Amino acid sequence: MSNNFTCNINSIRFDENYQPANSTRLTTNFANLARGEQREDNLRKTLKMINNRFNALAIWDNPTADRYSVEVDIISAEMDVEGNGDAFPVIEMLKTTIVDHKTNTRTEGIVGNSFSSYVRDYDFSVVLLEHFDKNPSCPPPEDFGELHGKLFQYLLNSDAYQANFNKLPVICLSVSTTKTYQRTTNEHPVLGVEYKQDEYSLTDDYFHKMGLTVRYFMPKGSVAPLAFYFAGDLLSDYTDLELISTISTMETFQKIYRPEIYNANSAAGQVYQPSLTYQDYSLTQVAYDREERSQLAVKQGKFTEEHFIKPYQEILENWAANYDVKQIVA
């Protein structure tokens, strides 16, 4: 049985006037920030943090540290399984654009950055929880994340993605609190000092099934390494400004979302294990409801089960069993 799912790409600007779409995955950082009485103040402060961090890293020919600003767009990918116009919002990412106020030019940044997925919520908040309830000491099922991984790779190889983006995504997330990271002697001029670990986390394995490799870097001025997931060559496929746009955007979100790690008052040492129980950290001035985020992850997972997994289960299973994973191309 062969199915060709239809993919559509939509974009909305993330600025102080941003209003979350009705179809957005509400557990995402940017949607959480854009609700409530402080929404406009939250958004302004978040964007200011991104711009300040960008200029702190792009220091060449930038003596007053205000040469650049970053525009952020939310990219939503929808998938129509049956070709009847009933599209399901599968994945959301961010795309950056770099504005150079000295030359009055705009340069594309990187697509990816943040990563939000209904199917990922289903996998972690429904499948995994049910599995551990029944088998608390057993590892996840062997096929855990395989459908999601193939859907992601199908999206990247789709005409819709190819028409909108000329490079593969880089996704930048927090490091795992269950793993210990060792500082290496490798240092990149933009990404900073590289860290390594001996064993992949569950998230690392999940992204590996999406065709992505992970490396961990702590940029200059950062206090903890970030996890960078990519499909090509992270160090040679992207320019310095592109990498800086990802660092400045995602470190800002992590400072807001996980201040215990990314807004700690001391930097990671030679051997580092992140912890959300760490007490010596500073809060940003941006209001963020982390409890709501965790509650909504379960709700979104159940929503996905009801509106995507169960209605199309036979189609999805047959498609996944026969889908030949191709090399991801830009």
Rank of each mutant, 00 (worst) to 15 (best):
S2T: 14
S2V: 15
N3D: 09
T6S: 14
E16C: 05
P20A: 00
A21C: 04
N22M: 06
L26Q: 08
T27C: 15
T28Q: 04
N29M: 11
E37R: 08
L43I: 08
K48P: 09
F54C: 11
F54E: 04
N55G: 06
N55H: 09
L57S: 02
A58N: 01
D61Y: 15
R67F: 10
Y68S: 04
S69K: 03
V70P: 00
D73E: 15
I74H: 00
A77N: 03
D86S: 09
D86V: 15
D86A: 09
A87R: 01
P89N: 08
V90T: 11
K95S: 10
D100P: 12
H101S: 02
T105W: 02
I110P: 01
N113R: 00
S117V: 06
D123I: 05
L129N: 11
E130L: 04
D133C: 06
L147Y: 00
Y154M: 10
N157I: 13
Q162A: 10
L173I: 03
T177N: 05
T178Q: 10
Y181C: 06
Q182P: 01
N186C: 06
E187S: 12
G192C: 11
Y195I: 13
E199F: 05
Y200M: 14
D204L: 03
H208R: 12
H208L: 14
G211Q: 01
F217S: 03
P219M: 04
P219F: 07
K220E: 06
V223R: 12
L226W: 05
L226R: 02
Y229W: 01
F230M: 01
A231C: 11
D233Q: 08
D233K: 09
D237Q: 02
T246P: 01
E260R: 07
N263T: 11
S266Y: 11
Q270S: 15
Y272D: 13
Q273R: 04
Q273E: 14
Q273M: 12
Q279D: 03
D280A: 10
L283V: 14
D289H: 03
D289V: 08
Q295F: 14
Q295P: 02
Q295C: 13
K299D: 07
G301Y: 06
G301Q: 12
E314M: 11
I315W: 01
E317D: 10
A320H: 12
N322Y: 12
Y323P: 10
Y323N: 03
D324Y: 07
K326Q: 06
